[in-house]
C-alpha cells in the first residue's frame, strides 16, 4: 500500500537527513509506538525510553524502509522487536503481579458500573501481563491496537496462520488465567476455532 504523499515526503526528506521532517514522523506516530511499548512493558518511564530508542533505530534504518509497506507497520515491527528484547533482558528481575498491575482509567459513567469495570479491567490486564511475551504482543496488536491479521503478519513477520493460532492460544490461556483468578462470572466458554 502506498503511503500518502505527505507522509512519503517526510520519509524522503528524513532519509536525506532533514530533522524537521523526521520530527513530523515522530509527532505522527509516537502515540501508537508509545502505546505498544506501554502495553508490553507496563511502565510509563520504560515505555518512554523505549519509544526514544525505537525512533532512533528507525532513523538509522530509514534507508531500508520499503515504500511498499505501510510506514506504521514497519515502525511497529521495530518496536515489537525492541520490546521483546527488553522483556527478555528484564526477565532475570523478579517482578510481582502487584508491581505490574496498574490503575486503568474507566470511561463509563456511574460509580457502580465503573467499580465493576475497574475490577474487570485490572483482572484482564493482569491476565494479559501473564501471557508469554510473543502471545502478549499479538494480543495487544489485535485487541488493543486494532490491527488486522495482515497487518500483524507484516509487523511480526509471522504467517497469518501462526498469528491466528497464537491468538487462539492466547485466548485459551487468558480464559484459564481469568478463571484461576476466581469469581469471574462474566467469563463464558469461548467458541473453539481451529
Amino acid at each position: 500500500m502506498e503511503p500518502h504523499s505527505e507522509e512519503l515526503g517526510w520519509i524522503e526528506r528524513s532519509q536525506q537527513g532533514d530533522h524537521a521532517a523526521f520530527a513530523q514522523l515522530v509527532e505522527a506516530y509516537q502515540g501508537p509506538v508509545y502505546n505498544l511499548a506501554y502495553r508490553m512493558l507496563h511502565d510509563a518511564g520504560e515505555a518512554e525510553d523505549a519509544t526514544q530508542e525505537i525512533f532512533l533505530r528507525a532513523y538509522t534504518k530509514l534507508v531500508m524502509y520499503d515504500r511498499e509497506r505501510k510506514f506504521i507497520t514497519w515502525l511497529l515491527s521495530i518496536a515489537s522487536n525492541y520490546c521483546i528484547d527488553q522483556l527478555r533482558r528484564r526477565r532475570a528481575n523478579v517482578v510481582t503481579l502487584d508491581d505490574i498491575a496498574y490503575a486503568i482509567p474507566s470511561t463509563v459513567a456511574g460509580p457502580e458500573r465503573r467499580a465493576l469495570d475497574q475490577e474487570q479491567r485490572t483482572a484482564i490486564q493482569r491476565a494479559v501481563n501473564q501471557l508469554p511475551d510473543t502471545y502478549r504482543l499479538i494480543t495487544v496488536l489485535r485487541y488493543y491496537q486494532d490491527f488486522s491479521y495482515e497487518e500483524i503478519e507484516a509487523i511480526t513477520g509471522l504467517s497469518e496462520a501462526t498469528v491466528k493460532t497464537r491468538l487462539f492460544r492466547a485466548r485459551r490461556m487468558l480464559q484459564e488465567l481469568l478463571i484461576k483468578e476466581g469469581g469471574v462470572p462474566w467469563i463464558v466458554e469461548p467458541a473453539v476455532h481451529s
Binding site: 479491567r121 484482564i124 490486564q125 485466548r171 467469563i187
Partner: peptide, 18 residues
C-alpha cells in the same frame, strides 16, 4: 463469536499518552 476477544475489546484500555 469469540467471548474472550469480546471481553478484551469491551475492556479495552484508554489510550495512554507520552
Amino acid at each position: 463469536a469469540d467471548a474472550i476477544g469480546q471481553l478484551l475489546r469491551h475492556a479495552h484500555l484508554s489510550a495512554v499518552h507520552p
